[in-house]
Simulated scan of single mutants.
Amino acid sequence: MEMETSAATPTRPPRLPAASPSPSPSSLRLWRSAAHRNVRNQWSHLAAAKDQWLDAAADGRSHAAGLVNAHLARRNMSATDLGVLKDMPGIRDKASSKLARREEQYSGMLLSSYKKMVRALCHLVKASRSMRSFSKVSPNGSVAQFSERQDDLNDSGDGGGAPVFKWFSILEFEGLAQELVEMFVSDLKLKRLLVLELLSITFKEGVEHQASLDWGDELYDGESNELQSIGLQSGETCPLPENWCADISGSQRPGNPPSHEVLQVYLTAWLVNVNINKSRIDEIFELVEEEMKIKLS
């Protein structure tokens, strides 16, 4: 259901209870000035990271399609009609070798796109957790300073729940940011599952199971640390949509490569960004831009 907004009275998310006592009017003015700058900066970071994630996902889908096409062409090479080329010595072996190299190239590019998605998600999470402005203890105490780090345990950095600009408190900005993050986290889990499946098809047919990728494996050096920094483990995955599960599970017989139909399902799952609600993302940024009276992108 679309949420209507107007320039005069933007629709607001439910107000959450304040996490700290209200500061004095003079302290609040100083805090709000710092909070203005910080919240604008963090939402600019969120907008940039969101775009980086979507760009990397689009590139990943293109590389995944190239990988699937090269794999299917190589797999079907023995039955392919080569026409007048069929009598050339070693033509099928040469074509198969070239397609195998293409698979390796597309696999590398797909993994690179996935890595960019993880990095973009790390930036999203960091920005979503950096909305607050805490009072900073200065040596002489003559000038009020603020920081993203909490020095005073009694200072929650949220201005006592006061609006930062006109309507939204820090908690409400954080709630909107967390809603964004949850979408991208959920879709990254699904895409990681698909990356594992797509990279696994590049192994030669007939290899033993232990030579294949497993859910707990790192897909690139440092992946586990990056995922753990945002509260994920490398083995965490998200199930495919229910109406696709029968096709997917039917392909998972030991030693059997996924069928052409299943590979197309994988590509479709990647293309549609199953867990990303683009209209809601646009709505969130419109609300924030109206609240802050700036354009983020």
Rank of each mutant, 00 (worst) to 15 (best):
M1D: 13
A7I: 10
P10V: 05
R15G: 03
A18S: 12
S24Y: 00
S24E: 09
S24L: 13
S26K: 15
S27V: 07
L28W: 02
R29G: 03
L30N: 10
R32T: 10
A35H: 11
Q42V: 10
Q42P: 03
H45I: 08
H45T: 09
A47K: 15
A47M: 11
A48N: 06
K50T: 15
D51S: 12
Q52S: 13
W53T: 03
D55A: 14
D59M: 08
G60A: 15
H63L: 02
H71M: 02
H71R: 11
L72H: 08
D81N: 13
G83M: 02
L85F: 12
D87M: 08
I91M: 11
E104W: 04
E104N: 02
S107H: 00
L110R: 14
L111A: 10
S113G: 12
S113F: 03
Y114G: 04
K116Q: 14
M117V: 00
L121G: 02
V125G: 00
A127N: 02
K136E: 13
P139M: 05
G141V: 02
G141D: 02
V143F: 11
A144F: 05
A144P: 05
A144W: 06
F146I: 00
S147P: 04
S147E: 10
E148H: 07
E148M: 07
L153Q: 04
L153P: 01
L153I: 08
G157D: 08
G159E: 05
G160K: 06
F165M: 12
E174D: 12
E174A: 12
G175N: 11
G175C: 01
A177K: 02
E179D: 15
V181W: 01
M183V: 00
L188V: 00
K191T: 06
R192Y: 01
L193F: 04
L194A: 03
L196C: 06
L196Y: 03
L198T: 09
I201A: 10
T202K: 10
V207R: 12
E208Q: 06
H209F: 09
A211M: 12
A211H: 09
L213S: 02
D214E: 10
Y220V: 07
Y220E: 09
S224Q: 14
E226W: 14
E226T: 01
Q233H: 12
L240R: 09
N243D: 13
A246S: 15
S251R: 00
R253W: 02
N256T: 13
E261F: 07
V262K: 00
L263N: 14
V265A: 06
Y266I: 00
L271I: 00
V274P: 05
I276E: 06
I276Y: 10
N277I: 04
R280Y: 14
L287R: 15
M292N: 05
L296T: 03
S297C: 07
